[in-house]
Design a protein around this nucleic acid. Structure first.
Length: 516
RNA sequence: CGGGGCGUAGCGCAGCCUGGUAGCGCGCCUGCUUUGGGAGCAGGAUGUCGGAGGUUCAAAUCCUCUCGCCCCGACCA
């Protein structure tokens, strides 16, 4: 009598991880591939998630004194040429605008006309155009620091793309700051890396390792790049955010100078830091399962879905009335009243639990079988489902299904309250982080030799070892194992050891892994 | 940018070799039965066969050109 095991997502993670990833995105309705090569359409559910990420992170930026601004999409070609390493890094993936008009061509179609005197590059990142502004804004140490962030789209003409992880156009934020001293710039670089780490862990429930990138992995034009690195369920690494100490490189290229306290004209010290919609990819791959998306409560656009179950009209009336009461208990009577007014006649009743965080409880009154609705919300990763049938109404109870662990618990209706819901959410949030952290720890090994390292990398996961930084050695390791140094963690055991590849003395351990 | 593949209904595909009424599955629509974990029956709608040219009485099918996409390699938040 046992039913064949059927998962919502086919193939499963086990069977074909990359394909599973695509299918989760499709099933959860987050995004789809656009007709435009390499670009994606972020659908309302996916965008709501991004909005929650923006909201949470933006507040954290502002708490450190950063202000938002906006710079042009187009960058004069000559700007990009000013910093040698920067050009080198981005030249191969730039979209270039050369014309400003369309005319009817000989065959009836439209052809570009009106060639620009200087081509414009669609920003792959904005250090250059912001550098130009900073040069005009800053003249004295009294103008410093300048702490700017912009939420924007950028374009990098990628060869191979994957939704959220690597698309030609993507959404991100880029922070750009200018400082009086090297030390302040360094502090800022690390402060923002810390913000990213907190956000990843507190909001996304994705544990990350903070550390420094090697020379060969750093941002084109930076002195030093720092990153937060996360482990996905296939045990590959994903760089989830970066923060760069740009030294005086861009200040020199764009002549960003200030008159110092010593009355000497000198170049600023600048930083830049960013996270992108890739965070959504991290979220998906860190938590989701073979039934679909799993969202951490803190960023889930809908916190809970109430699914009524009934057969007869009489039952329907009783159950729906009961569900409304439940929604009112969870969200508050005023909010329920506001929702009833706004959504009158609609099949979904959306009640806010927290307008500021844009979180909602949904009562799903659509026609159709209850099971279909369960799957609907399950695939979309909604953290909680409250299932209510006639039997629950009779007992004045409800069934709570928790998305992340699939658990099913019974509750008295009387316990439903805003505080109770928040409590449930906080618990799940904490347990999701804990589960992800445990997974990462279980898949991290410390190795003592290159042979051990190769064996460990073949198994997957993070490999930690003494490593003396050397681009040639890194290239060789990549050649032989496909793995790269993900990060040189801030957390070090102390003391020294012998590099696993070269046996040279070193004070640093590195983390190697296959990466996205 | 090198090597391979694919364009036929919203999605996934068959048909092409050997030219002759445009097909299947899923989804969608309508109705009834269902409804506490992936429903059943009945009926229905949907196509410039990627585009252009050619061969032919006749082209999804053969020929030429073209466009787009996907996969595999070097680079990447």
């Amino acid at each position: 009598m046992s039913k064949p095991i059927q998962t919502a997502i086919k193939p499963t993670r086990e069977e074909d991880y990359p394909e599973w990833y695509q299918q989760v995105i499709k099933a959860s309705d987050l995004a789809e591939k656009s007709v435009v090569r390499g670009c994606m359409v972020i659908k309302p559910w996916g965008y709501a998630l991004w909005e929650n990420i923006m909201r949470g992170m933006d507040a954290m930026f502002k708490a450190t004194g950063v202000k938002n601004a906006y710079f042009p999409l187009f960058i004069p070609l000559s700007f990009l040429e000013k910093e040698a390493a920067h050009v080198e890094g981005f030249a191969k993936e730039c979209a270039v605008v050369t014309h400003h008009r369309l005319e009817k061509g000989p065959s009836g179609g439209l052809v570009p006309a009106g060639a620009l005197a200087e081509p414009l590059v669609v920003r792959p990142t904005s250090e250059t155009i912001i550098g130009e502004s900073f040069a005009r804004w800053i003249s004295s140490y009294r103008d410093l620091p300048v702490l700017i962030n912009q939420w924007a789209n950028v374009m990098r003409w990628e060869m191979r793309t994957r939704l959220f992880l690597r698309t030609a156009e993507f959404l991100w934020q880029e922070g750009h700051t200018a400082h009086e001293t090297a030390q302040e710039a360094q502090e800022e670089t690390l402060r923002m890396l810390g913000v990213y780490a907190s956000f990843a862990e507190d909001f996304l429930a994705v544990p990350v390792i903070q550390g420094r990138k090697t020379e060969s992995e750093k941002f084109p034009g930076a002195d030093t790049t720092y990153a937060i690195e996360a482990m996905m369920q296939d045990r590959k690494a994903l760089q989830a955010g970066t923060s760069h100490n740009l030294g005086q490189n861009f200040a020199r290229a764009f002549d960003v100078k200030f008159l110092g306290r010593d009355n000497q004209l000198q170049h600023c010290w600048t930083t830049s830091w960013g996270v992108s919609t890739r965070l959504i990819g991290a979220l998906i791959m860190a938590h989701s399962d073979d039934e679909g998306l799993v969202l951490p409560p803190r960023v889930a656009p809908t916190l809970a879905a109430i699914v009524p179950i009934f057969k007869t009209d009489e039952e329907k009336e009783r159950v729906l009335a009961y569900c409304r009461e439940l929604a009112g208990a969870l969200c508050g009577a005023e909010r329920l009243a506001a929702a009833e007014k706004r959504d009158a006649g609609r099949e979904l009743l959306t009640v806010f639990t927290d307008e500021a965080a844009c979180q909602k409880v949904v009562l799903d009154m659509r026609e159709g079988r209850a099971v279909e609705k369960h799957y609907h919300w399950e695939q979309r990763g909604v953290p909680f489902r409250l299932e209510v049938g006639p039997r629950d109404v009779d007992k004045s109870a409800f069934v709570l299904k928790t998305r992340f662990d699939g658990s099913k618990t019974f509750h008295e209706k009387g316990c439903a309250s805003p505080g109770w819901l928040r409590e449930q959410a906080d618990q799940v949030q904490a347990r999701m982080l804990e589960r992800a952290r445990t997974f990462r720890e279980e898949n991290t090994v410390v190795v003592e030799s290159y042979d051990e390292m190769k064996a460990a990398l073949a198994q997957g996961g993070f490999v930690r070892c003494w490593f003396r930084e050397d681009p040639e050695v890194e290239a060789r390791i990549k050649e032989e194992t496909k793995a790269t140094v993900r990060v040189i963690p801030f957390e070090q055991p102390g003391g020294t050891g012998k590099c696993v590849v070269t046996s040279r003395e070193t004070s640093e351990q590195a983390i190697f892994a296959l990466a996205y």
